[in-house]
């Protein structure tokens, strides 16, 4: 007990191994389940919307390039314009705009809830700094948390959006289309939705996390002002 612990490190260094960072981040997410849920909710909604539009587009393009006359007819009955020969199906400008807005709203929502989360955790951040945490430990903890939230939220959202798009298509265009649609393409779309979701989640936490990391321990201990 008396013997000083000899650091097996280069001189005067503090560390936070990546594995430990993840451990702490997971703990923090679990113990703040409700807050995490709220932060993630806007992401789930936005990403499910994105995945829905993307997968819907996949399905429609698969149908248009197919030879299934009946399905194509049902498409035009739904008021969907079939692009000319050799041209890919694309989103209309309005659809793009709505998609962009929904993602923007989502990021703003994440920034907002993350700022609140940081304010709630001033004391915790200050304490960690008193125990020897560097700015970048704090930054890393927040980024990992955001990435995990992004991963979980967008996986849920992506799956939900794709599922709704598929079920909707089956109802609208008949079960015969099941054979036309490429599963690979849908999975790729869901994957892109998940990547996008993680990205949005991380973008949303950047500013709050920087704020937290830069905080001086005294400020943090004194509370929020």
């Amino acid at each position: 007990m008396q013997g000083k612990i000899k650091p097996n490190l280069p001189q005067k260094q503090v560390v936070l191994p990546f594995k430990k960072s993840v451990e702490i981040a997971v703990k923090s997410i679990k113990s703040r389940f409700f807050r995490t849920l709220i932060t993630t909710m806007s992401l789930i909604l936005a990403i499910s919307f994105y995945a829905y539009i993307k997968v819907n587009l996949d399905i429609i393009s698969s149908i248009t390039v197919s030879n299934d006359k009946a399905a194509i007819q049902r498409l035009s009955l739904q008021g969907i314009e079939i692009p000319g020969e050799g041209r890919a199906m694309e989103l209309s400008p309005q659809e793009r705009w709505i998609l962009f807005l929904s993602l923007l709203v989502c990021v703003v929502g994440i920034v907002n809830t993350q700022l609140m989360a940081v304010a709630d955790r001033f004391r915790e951040i200050g304490t960690m700094k008193c125990l020897g945490a560097l700015d970048r430990f704090i930054l890393r903890l927040f980024l990992i948390e955001a990435a995990l939230q992004g991963l979980i939220g967008s996986a849920l959202g992506g799956a939900a959006g794709a599922l709704i798009a598929c079920l909707g298509a089956l109802v609208k265009y008949g079960s015969s289309i099941a054979g036309l649609v490429s599963l690979n393409q849908i999975l790729t779309s869901v994957f892109s939705a998940v990547v996008l979701g993680c990205l949005l989640s991380i973008i949303g936490v950047l500013y709050p996390a920087l704020l937290a990391a830069k905080m001086q321990p005294v400020e943090a201990m004194r509370g929020r002002d």
Binding site: I5, P7, N8, L9, Q13, V14, V15, L16, P17, K20, K27, M128, L131, G132, A133, F137
Partner: peptide
């Protein structure tokens, strides 16, 4: 326990 060991994590123990 995790609270007590946190400074040791930072110290690389």
């Amino acid at each position: 326990l995790e609270n007590v060991t946190l400074p040791m994590v930072f110290a690389g123990i």
